[in-house]
């Protein structure tokens, strides 16, 4: 199965299960589960924004992503719910983070942006205690929403696991999710590979291969997809053998419905004869979205091969092809 094939099948699953992303009454309820309402909708929007940007309008994926974006925007009542959310939870950052996904796809609500800016001017907003990775996301959300970012990006980057260039053998799941999101924020979700500072890009080119290999080995499909998206977001991609191997292994985890389970445990629970729709929505929606995201960035790469940041690194291409590995920065 080709990379594009994995992505198409995964987006088919998303389309067929789009009702799972719909906002129910609990989206606004005080005791509603944000992680089951706003979070999936925001992630759907993020991924579809990326797909629509990196596929040509003639591409079937582009049309489907656009339709899903319209669907998602409708769920927010064309942005009206963000203002309502703010009146209910004025200091929560997630509404702005979700809104920023829409804004990056061109769906905007000026009234909400104006009221979000009022809260973002407070010291309390700037000092919200969050993981450094998440802070970086809030900065990017501010930027996308017409709000002056509350801190410089390099300062926020410094506080993250990835920003400190840690020993790569200290990687584990939580560090992995933190680092993928740092790259997503720095590159505007794969759109701007140049957002990755060169030292960080070298570091990632060195160590993505063993992280990918071991995540795939541990059947951590969701994180593997995110790492593949990171690989496709760098100024210079890892050597082809690394990506080919990873995509081949990931494809084995994809169900015929197009769903990619989050982890091997979901596969074990489903068993070998699980039927046409083997995974619960919560067990596969995120990893399936990430498969779409990673595949669209990966297949878009050759189409953008003439980008400046790529051209200036072509002298390294021969090095990468020399061995079945060792595609290291010079």
């Amino acid at each position: 199965m080709s990379v594009a094939g994995v992505g198409e099948a995964a987006l088919d699953w998303v389309w067929a299960h789009r009702d799972g992303f719909a906002l129910g009454d609990d989206a606004l309820a005080a005791d509603g589960q944000v992680n089951r309402t706003w979070k999936p909708l925001g992630e759907l929007t993020r991924v579809c924004a990326s797909v629509s940007l990196c596929t040509p309008p003639t591409d079937a994926l582009h049309a489907r992503a656009s339709d899903l974006l319209d669907f998602a925007w409708q769920q927010t009542h064309r942005g009206e719910l963000f203002g309502l959310m703010q009146s209910l939870e004025p200091f929560a950052t997630y509404p702005l983070e979700v809104y920023a996904a829409f804004a990056s796809a061109g769906f905007r609500h000026p009234g909400y942006e104006a009221s979000a800016a009022v809260v973002a001017r407070t010291r309390g907003w700037r000092l919200t205690e969050q993981y450094p990775t998440r802070r970086l996301g809030v900065l990017e959300a501010e930027r996308h929403s017409g709000i002056q970012p509350h801190a410089p990006v390099p300062q926020a980057l410094e506080g993250t696991w990835l920003g400190g260039l840690p020993e790569p053998w200290t990687f584990e799941r939580s560090a992995g999710y933190a680092l993928t999101h740092v790259v997503f924020h720095l590159t505007d979700w794969g759109r701007a590979p140049r957002g990755v500072p060169s030292g960080l890009a070298d570091y990632l080119l060195h160590w993505l291969p063993p992280w990918l290999d071991t995540c795939l080995d541990a059947r951590m499909w969701d994180l593997s997809c995110e790492l593949l998206a990171v690989a496709a977001s760098l100024p210079r991609p890892p050597e082809p053998s690394v990506l080919d191997d990873a995509w081949r292994r990931l494809a084995t985890a994809q169900d015929s419905s197009g769903a990619v389970p989050e982890e091997g445990s979901a596969q074990d629970a489903a068993g070998p004869d699980a039927g046409p729709d083997p995974y619960a929505f919560t067990d596969c929606y995120h990893s399936t979205l990430m498969a779409v995201f990673a595949a669209s960035l990966t297949t878009a790469r050759p189409r953008h091969a003439d980008r400046a940041e790529h051209a200036e690194h072509t002298e390294h291409a021969d090095d990468a092809a020399q061995h079945a590995g060792q595609g290291a920065p010079g």
């Binding site: 053998w169 990687f171 291969p209 063993p210 992280w211 071991t214 061995h323 590995g325 060792q326």
Partner: peptide, 17 residues
């Protein structure tokens, strides 16, 4: 000697495993 980065990657992988 030709592949120091690859051996370093293998070290990371072995520790992870």
């Amino acid at each position: 000697r030709r592949r120091p980065v690859d051996v370093a990657r293998g070290f990371v992988r072995a520790v992870r495993r």
